[in-house]
Design a protein around this nucleic acid. Structure first.
Lengths: 165, 165
DNA sequence: GGTTGACCTTCCCATGATGGGAAGCCGCAA
DNA sequence: TTGCGGCTTCCCATCATGGGAAGGTCAACC
């Protein structure tokens, strides 16, 4: 099994699905595989190794176009590690930017959820926040979030209710 | 102008692009807008308000299907804030999960980048890491540590089958 | 030999949210 | 009336991945 595998075996060995292997081939990310007489693709250790490289790069969040570059650098004996490092650092920046963005959103939502009683009544600062706009940190007359905490709540009524037509 | 706007004006007022407003209508996220004789869509303050709600929910990372639910809760006088809160908390969980995932990837990559000289020579632990597998901190001679996708499958009986053209 | 069933092939479609652009109609102003 | 910009619908593209159909291939088993 070492020296000639089906796409399914290559998929299992590399961790890349057969579907994706074909796709990567179709977009030229990996070279066209050899074919047997039957038309079946045939993979050797080299190919599997390359597929593993691709999978690990994907696991680190690299987009395919960047992986294309990485593969180029991988196979280029004249590369400088500085190039690789720059690529990696830039990618790290993107990852962290996205992570920060997600956490920002989670933070805002957490703030809203904190002031939501979560009981059976309809009053809800979360809905109110979505209705009225994102509370800009320390806005002037934002009476939104910290309005009431846990006291005196008469059986409220509804919000402006979308209807029309 | 306050009480009857084009899609463009509604877009500007709500912060949702005209393209997206049409899309949201087409998937039934917002009700079909009134039309003028000309066929132009016509929006009133209520509509703009609803679009603003959608935009803010999107800004907080809610997927459209969840926004659909949020809109339903918004317009439901009998809702309980617990429902809303549960939805929000679940979404917070997802956001944080994704953020954690991104940071994990960034962390691994940072580790590799740290040990990369970044000079003009080709030797590069980043490339090596991609080649050899996710470096489990201080692994000896990592052969094939994390064989994913290789579990829970009855062993295929097919052999490599020599056939090559 | 024939059957079976897992595997392979290609091709099309779907996701989620958004945008680009074409072809053609509408509205307002000069 | 001409002109321009906004509106309409419809199709395509993104990014990475998967689902599934229709049909060919392969190895094993009876």
């Amino acid at each position: 099994m070492g020296i000639a595998m089906n796409i399914g075996q290559a998929a299992e060995a590399s961790g890349v699905s057969a579907k994706m292997i074909r796709h990567y081939e179709s977009i030229g990310l990996v070279p066209r595989a050899d074919r047997r007489n039957s038309g079946y693709r045939d993979y050797g250790p080299q190919d599997v190794h390359r597929l593993g490289f691709v999978r690990r790069a994907r696991d680190l969040g690299f987009p395919l176009e960047r992986i294309r570059v990485l593969l180029g650098l991988w196979g280029d004996p004249g590369r400088s590690s500085a190039e690789v490092k720059a690529l990696a650092l830039s990618h790290i920046g993107e990852l962290e930017g996205k992570a920060r963005h997600l956490q920002e959103m989670a933070g805002v939502l957490r703030g809203l959820a904190l002031s939501c009683d979560g009981d059976e009544r309809p009053d809800c600062p979360i809905i109110a926040g979505l209705e009225a706009g994102p509370v800009p940190p320390s806005g002037p007359c934002t009476g939104r979030p910290t309005s009431r905490s846990s006291s005196a709540k008469p059986p409220s009524r509804r919000s402006p209710s979308p209807d029309r037509r």
